[in-house]
Amino acid sequence: MVNLQQILSFIFISLFLFPGPGRGQNSEKADKLFEEEQVQGITLGVNLEGPIGLFFDTDRSAFSAVTHINLSPGWYFRGEAGFENLVFSDENVEERNFRYESNGSFVKAGLLYDFFSVDEVGNNDNIFVGLNYGFAFQEHRSGGYTIENDYWGDFHDSESAYLMNTHWLEVSAGPRTELFKNFYMGWTVNLKVKILQDNARELQPYSVPGFGNGDNTVNVGFSYVLEYMIPWKK
C-alpha cells in the first residue's frame, strides 16, 4: 500500500495547484461575493475508479454514479451508488488455492465542506473535505478451495453462495474543478474505516464493493469523478 505520508504530501502539494487563498483568509466582502456568485444545482457523474481499475485487475468490473448537491454556500451532499462483480481468473485460482466469485452493490452518502473560495467571478472550483457513510451488500461464494497437505493428501471443498453486508465510514478530501461550463472533474483520496460487517460464515470477502480489500479494516481509496451540473439557482 502506498505510504500514507506520500499521499498526504501529494494532497498538500496539489492544493497549491489551485490559485487563490482559502475561505478563512478572505474578507467579508469576498465571502459575500462568493455566495452571490456560487452556482447551486445537482450534478450527475461517473466515478472512473472502477473502469480504470480494470486495467490493473481484469477479474474485477466495477462502476458507480456520483451526485453532488449544493445544500448551502460551502456545504454539499455527496451520494454515490454502484456495483462490483469479481470472478477469479484461472491464474488467480491457481495462485491462491481457491475459487472466488462476488456480486455486490454499494451506496455512499455524506456531507462535504468546500473550503476554497476566490475573488474571481465565475470560478466554481472547490476543495472538498467530507465525511461519508458507506454500505455494501454482496453475494459471494467459493466454487472450490484446496488446503494442501503434502503427506496425507490435499483437502478439497467449496462454500456455497450467501449474502453479507458491510458498513464503513469514509473521510475524503480533494479538489474539483469546472473544466467547461457546468462540467466538472474532481478527485478525492478516501480513508475508509470498516465499522461493522455481518458475515455469517467463514469465507471473507476478497473485495467489498465500494470499500476495497476485504481483509483490511482500513483502506485508502481514490475516486476520479467526471460530472455534469444541472443548475437550479444562481
Binding site: V2, F56, M185, W187
Partner: peptide
C-alpha cells in the same frame, strides 16, 4: 493549471489502484 491538477490526480490514482502497491 486545471489540466495539471487532473494529470496529477491520474498519476496518484494509478499509484493507488495498481496491484503493485499492495
Amino acid at each position: 493549471m486545471k489540466l495539471l491538477t487532473g494529470l496529477s490526480a491520474l498519476c496518484l490514482m494509478v499509484l493507488l489502484v495498481s496491484p503493485g502497491c499492495e
